[in-house]
Design a protein around this nucleic acid. Structure first.
Lengths: 189, 189
DNA sequence: GGTAGTAGCCTAGCTCTCCTAGGCAACCGA
DNA sequence: TCGGTTGCCTAGGAGAGCTAGGCTACTACC
């Protein structure tokens, strides 16, 4: 009997594609096995369990997004960098909704610390260099920025903005203007 | 045989409690049936299916949150109203993580239109009256506000801020200051 | 080039969830 | 008091998650 050539890497990638097609919640070990023409039980040789698969997809997505954001950020500063970061972030979520949703699962601390999430944090802080914020304002600003990006993208995905006619692209652009404005003029205590 | 007295309302409430205890994803028809001392199949007399249950929990949560926010907003205006709204929102998410997570599920348009989500939108717009923003800035500001709240609360829940020592309460407070500042001085095109 | 060991897949089978079909008993109104 | 409806039941199928144990293809080493 010919071997299917299954590896954890191929499983994770196929799982990520599956997530983008049918949503993370519908990424099952059984469906993935079918995609490889293999029995579901066979995948437990490569994966600890179903949650392990989802965590791997999340880590892949984090790394991919960090790569994209890093590339978008190269050679830019100030508002230019802010907009590039934000658009790379939003574009990734739009093109890979399943991967983006997978990123939101709760990683345990050590896994999170070893993930590309750390690179995200560094890059977010790098943007703020253009705005000259000292601690603890910097941390607060990083958190606000991340909240705005994630919140907007997340609400846009789940249809939270659907009831108003205005295009989300326009609101996104103006939200970035507003974010730039408040970062440039961070209110003092 | 004595009847258990199961109703859709009681099921929804118990489902919401279950969601807060074990997470929305673990709210199963079977677990709910056990809680009522009844067979799982019996619940399908009251519920269409498992998704129906989750939608009902989401609608309950939306209504509860709208009530809280409405109460918090009474007699307030300007930044005072903004902070009251934001804290009511965040407190609800903290006290009812399962309900809050349930709120994020994608409702179909007519269900959403009939939900308390409409009241949320109205109240969010009401806050902005204190900031004197005209359309389309108002819509953009509403979206940014909602994004910031949801993003912050959501990241806080999933542990996105865990890697930095600063307390999230402090960052939250400063984020609201920043939001107030940018709403007071909304950048023109 | 034979063979021992391991890696990669299999079948069988358990539990759990979701859901349907069909049955019976408790309650309610006429 | 006697249908009719309501509320629960049992039985059972499909699919997901996962374990145990077995067979086979490849690899490495002599």
């Amino acid at each position: 009997m010919a071997r299917a050539g299954v590896t954890v890497e191929r499983l994770t990638l196929a799982g990520a594609e599956l997530a983008d097609e049918v949503g993370v919640d519908n990424v099952t070990v059984a469906a993935l096995a079918r995609r490889f023409g293999v029995k579901d039980a066979s995948l437990y040789f490569h994966l600890k369990n179903a949650q392990d698969l989802r965590v791997r997809i999340a880590l892949l997505a984090l790394a991919e997004l960090a790569d994209r954001v890093g590339a978008a950020l190269a050679g830019r500063a100030g508002k230019d960098a802010l907009v590039a970061f934000a658009n790379a972030y939003r574009d990734y979520a739009t093109q890979h909704p399943g991967r983006y949703a997978a990123m939101q699962i709760d990683l345990d601390p050590e896994t999170a610390a070893a993930s590309a999430g750390v690179r995200h944090a560094e890059m977010t802080r790098a943007i703020l260099r253009g705005y000259r914020l000292a601690e603890p304002d910097q941390t607060d600003a990083v958190r606000m920025m991340h909240s705005t990006f994630h919140g907007f993208v997340s609400l846009e995905r789940t249809g939270g903005f659907r009831h108003t006619p205005r295009t989300t692209d326009d609101s996104w652009s103006r939200t970035l203007d507003a974010l730039d404005a408040v970062l440039s003029n961070w209110p003092s205590r």
